[in-house]
Design a protein around this nucleic acid. Sequence first.
DNA 1: ACCTGAACACCGTTCAAGT
DNA 2: ACCTGAACACCGTTCAAGT
Lengths: 202, 202
Amino acid sequence: MGRPRTPLLDRERITTTALQLVDEHGDFSVPQIAKRLGAQTGSVYHHVDGRDGIVELLRERVASAIDPGTLDVTPWDAALEAWAHSYLAAFAAHPRTIPLLMASPVRAPRVLEQYERAVTLLVDAGFALVDVMPLISALENLVLGSALDLAAPATMWVVTESTPTPRLAEALAAAGEGRANEAFEVGLKALMNHARALRPAG
Amino acid sequence: MGRPRTPLLDRERITTTALQLVDEHGDFSVPQIAKRLGAQTGSVYHHVDGRDGIVELLRERVASAIDPGTLDVTPWDAALEAWAHSYLAAFAAHPRTIPLLMASPVRAPRVLEQYERAVTLLVDAGFALVDVMPLISALENLVLGSALDLAAPATMWVVTESTPTPRLAEALAAAGEGRANEAFEVGLKALMNHARALRPAG
DNA sequence: ACCTGAACACCGTTCAAGT
DNA sequence: ACCTGAACACCGTTCAAGT
């Protein structure tokens, strides 16, 4: 065989296929990607730095949906809130990537750039340097936790008859479909109030 | 061969070994567990409901370190704060289980019981039923996100020279070792203030 | 440069067979 | 009841070989 006239594989197509697999099955494998693209398993390794490299490509792809313009909004608190909403929307679109991405450290340059800009925003707003990362980390925790929560609202809580949890069942029913979204808004509002109180008067 | 005079395997030992493997390598496999316990891979399946069953046993084991007594503290906000701290400590002791546990829904009865009690606490404190689950979910997101963040404080942010992120590097340095812990306390304080403001005057 | 095809050490799971 | 040993379909990764 050897080399085809038109390439079967590239990083773009590999990433798209991996994302489709994760959206459908919650996971991906290199052979599965190769099969869908009509290539051999080994061929994938010519374009990508192994399985971990594909995970990093997924992180970039998902994070690319975060609107960087949100961080230019004024005042600073509106910017942070808009960023959080855009961040949530990006991951909520592909929530099953989250457990995958959480297992490995952030190396993707574009993701690091977003954090660089968020740090700049808060420093320029007058926050003490010591307070900046805890705030951003708390925001990140809130966003990722909420996105994951949004993933499987019906199945995340298996309230079986074998274990009687009537109050939990009631509270879940009362909260309804919007529970995970509500939890995000509650956490965001709480964090923003805290941030505003923390900021030195400027 | 056949059956030994004294059993090689039981759920207790399987869980302990799986937890050790996850603590060490971030993951486990059924053959690895069998090998450490001196048994054959297939034998594990006589005690446990497959790999997913072991994951559920891990959830129970880790969550068993949460002190249920915290939910009896008065007043209600001190109880919720104590619970959150105990919850964080339990998962921070085995942070690498978190990505594993997040991929599957909560079925463990003991974990569901904890939530049942937390719901009861907030209902008795006078919260509207609609507000209870969003609050608890926000708290859970905060705890799990923070525990994960505590897992690999040095490696979670790979600030390479190839991608210049000087402000991020400064902010990380300023926050220091306690960054993830600070992020948790920031988020918790914010959420508790919000909860107190939300509660109908009683 | 890009892909094949085969190899290797590893998975999760099942099941007849032994004591 | 508890374990072995073998089987099956699947992984991730490497690499000589082809065009």
